[in-house]
Every structure is written in structure tokens, then in C-alpha cells.
Simulated assay, not measured.
Amino acid sequence: MTATAHQANDAPRQVSTRNPVTARRTSSGRRSRRGRLAVQGFLALVAVLWIFPVGYAVLASFRDYSYTAQHGYLSFGGFTLQNYKDAWAQANFSQTMVNSAIVTIPAVALTLFLSCCVAFVVARFSFKFNLALLGLFTAANLLPPQALLIPVYRMFRSIEVPFWFSESGTLLNSYWGLIAVNVAFQTGFCAFVLSNYMKALPRELYESAVVDGAGVLRQFFQLTLPLCRPALAALATLEVTWIYNEFFWATVLLQSGDKYPVTSSLNNLRGEFFTDNNLVAAGSVVIALPTLIVFFVLQKQFVAGLTLGATKG
């Protein structure tokens, strides 16, 4: 009887010491699952809201305007490829895409190279005006372009260049002027990103390079630039997108229609009395294709550049 009584008294104690722990684990597990489900649901909703306009524009680009005018834009049917043929012919994409390439490729290359030079000096050399120099280059991104419209326009109109360099004799109506203004406004951001990236590189690498007799130029071209490949790929993707889609300075600095970039081509698809939205959607898809190609080509390096250092303590 005494042993039975002791067992009866011990049983509730075992339950009381184990159940709270199990209950806490169960409740924490439920809260964790609910949190994950809530986050996944929120991300799914944001993804749908983000993708829907793009997907609808792509769908509309393959539909005939007469069909949508009769059945409405929420209908399904009337698919055709004629919108892309008409958009390519009316918008003169063959010329405007060449103009954008003439501006975008040199502007991106110059921006990344000059940014690497500035970032290397700021990250690897200590001097009195180190941070001030980086702030000077970054300050170009703090002012809106509209505030500098008149000063930049007057400056470019006053700068005289040879006629073989520009048909107007100034930097106006010149690809070089548009390249220069894009490089000036984008170098600060790229220098800021690259300087932080270069500061994270181990100093032991540079000390070993100095011991091996590598000079500053060799450290820059053979050591720093190869290590900055992920960051350069990420910045190249962003810069191609920003400079390729730039329209403000093109309308200000260019004065002849044969030099306008591809972003101006959509104006040629607008009618005088009505606008074929399906045709405009097809033109928008054509304009977006080069940036999408660049992103998918550099996708691996782009993601690596964005996530670098995310797991460091």
C-alpha cells in the first residue's frame, strides 16, 4: 500500500514537470508555422500585385485592338503577332535601339571604371580628405536632375567642341554630352557601393602583393578588379537599366529626332485621336527585352553581388 501510494503521488509530479515544456514547444512551433505562413502569404500577395501589370501588358501586346474594343480588355482571345510588326515599323526601333546602345554601352563602361578608381583610392589609402572625396562624388545623387536642368543646359551650350566631335559645335545634340551627364550622375552611387565592397577585402592580400613587388596599378588591375567581379556585375545590371531607360536628359540635350533613344519611340505609337494600348504594350515589351537579356546573362553574378556579406557576423 505504501509503494502504491508513493507511485500515485509521483505520477502527477512527472506530468506537471514535463507537460509545460512540451506545451511551450508546441505553442512556439505553432507560432513559428503561423509566422512563416503569414510571411509567405504576404510575399505571394506582393508578388501577384507586382507581376500582374507586367503580365497583363504582355498579354495585351498579343491581342488585336479590334477584338478588345468589341469584347473589352478583360476578355480572352484575339491573339496576334501583328502588334509587334506594326510597333517595330512605326516606332523605328532599328534606329532608336542603336542610339540607346551608343549612349548606354560607353556610359556604363566609363561609370564603372571611374567608380572603381575612386573607390580604390578611398578604400585603400588613408588621407585627410578621404571621406570628403567620397562625399563629393556621392553628392551628385542627392540633387534631383530637374534642379540642374538650366545650369547643365547652359554649360553644354557654352562648351565649344570641334565639328567632327559634334555637329552643333557644342555638347548639345551630341551623344558625348548625353554620355557625360549620365556618367556624372551615376559615378557617385557606384563609387559608394564599390568603396564599401573594397573595404571588406582582406588587407592580407594587398600586403602579400606588396611583398611580391606589385605596384599600385598592378594591385588595382590584377587583384582588386577580379575580386570585385560580383559587385561590378550587379552594378552593371542596374546601370544598364537606369541609363537605357533614361529619358529626361535625352529630351533636354538632344535636338534632332534621329538621335533620340529608344524610350522616345513610344511617342510614335500614340495616335492623334486615340491610342492603341495593345500596340503600345507591344512596344513596351520590345523596349524591355534588352534589359531583361542583360539581367538573365548576369543573373548569377548579380545575385552574388547583392548577397555578399549577408551571412557574415
Results as ranks from 00 to 15, higher is better:
5 A>R: 04
6 H>W: 10
11 A>C: 01
11 A>T: 02
16 S>P: 06
19 N>E: 13
24 R>C: 02
26 T>D: 09
31 R>L: 13
31 R>W: 10
34 R>Y: 14
36 R>I: 15
37 L>R: 13
37 L>Y: 09
39 V>G: 10
41 G>F: 02
41 G>R: 03
41 G>Y: 00
43 L>V: 07
48 V>S: 03
50 W>P: 01
51 I>H: 02
52 F>T: 08
54 V>P: 04
56 Y>M: 14
56 Y>W: 14
58 V>H: 05
59 L>Y: 03
74 L>E: 05
76 F>T: 07
79 F>D: 05
81 L>D: 04
82 Q>P: 02
83 N>R: 03
85 K>S: 09
86 D>P: 10
88 W>K: 08
88 W>N: 12
89 A>P: 02
90 Q>M: 15
91 A>V: 06
106 P>F: 04
106 P>Y: 05
108 V>P: 07
110 L>I: 14
111 T>N: 06
111 T>R: 06
117 C>E: 12
118 V>M: 12
119 A>L: 09
121 V>I: 15
121 V>G: 15
123 A>Q: 07
126 S>G: 07
130 N>P: 08
137 F>S: 07
137 F>E: 08
140 A>W: 03
140 A>K: 06
142 L>W: 04
142 L>I: 07
145 P>H: 01
148 L>G: 07
148 L>I: 13
149 L>P: 00
150 I>D: 05
151 P>A: 01
152 V>E: 01
154 R>W: 00
155 M>N: 00
159 I>Q: 02
159 I>Y: 03
160 E>W: 00
161 V>F: 00
161 V>H: 01
162 P>D: 05
163 F>D: 14
163 F>I: 01
167 E>D: 08
168 S>Y: 00
168 S>L: 05
169 G>L: 01
170 T>P: 01
171 L>P: 02
172 L>G: 00
175 Y>K: 04
181 V>Q: 09
181 V>F: 12
186 Q>D: 12
187 T>L: 15
191 A>P: 13
191 A>I: 10
194 L>Q: 13
197 Y>M: 06
197 Y>E: 06
197 Y>Q: 03
197 Y>V: 06
197 Y>T: 09
204 E>K: 08
204 E>A: 13
205 L>E: 09
207 E>R: 12
212 D>L: 03
213 G>E: 04
215 G>P: 09
215 G>C: 08
217 L>R: 13
219 Q>W: 09
221 F>N: 14
227 L>D: 01
227 L>H: 02
228 C>F: 00
228 C>Q: 04
229 R>H: 00
230 P>M: 00
231 A>M: 07
231 A>F: 02
233 A>N: 08
235 L>Q: 08
236 A>E: 13
237 T>H: 11
238 L>I: 12
238 L>D: 08
239 E>P: 01
239 E>A: 11
241 T>L: 15
243 I>H: 03
244 Y>S: 00
246 E>W: 06
247 F>G: 07
249 W>D: 02
259 K>R: 13
259 K>F: 09
267 N>V: 14
271 G>T: 06
271 G>L: 07
272 E>L: 15
273 F>I: 04
276 D>P: 07
282 A>P: 09
284 S>A: 15
285 V>T: 15
286 V>P: 13
287 I>Q: 12
289 L>D: 09
292 L>R: 07
292 L>K: 07
295 F>K: 05
296 F>Y: 10
297 V>M: 09
299 Q>G: 05
301 Q>C: 01
301 Q>G: 09
302 F>D: 07
305 G>N: 11
311 T>Y: 11
312 K>F: 04
313 G>A: 11
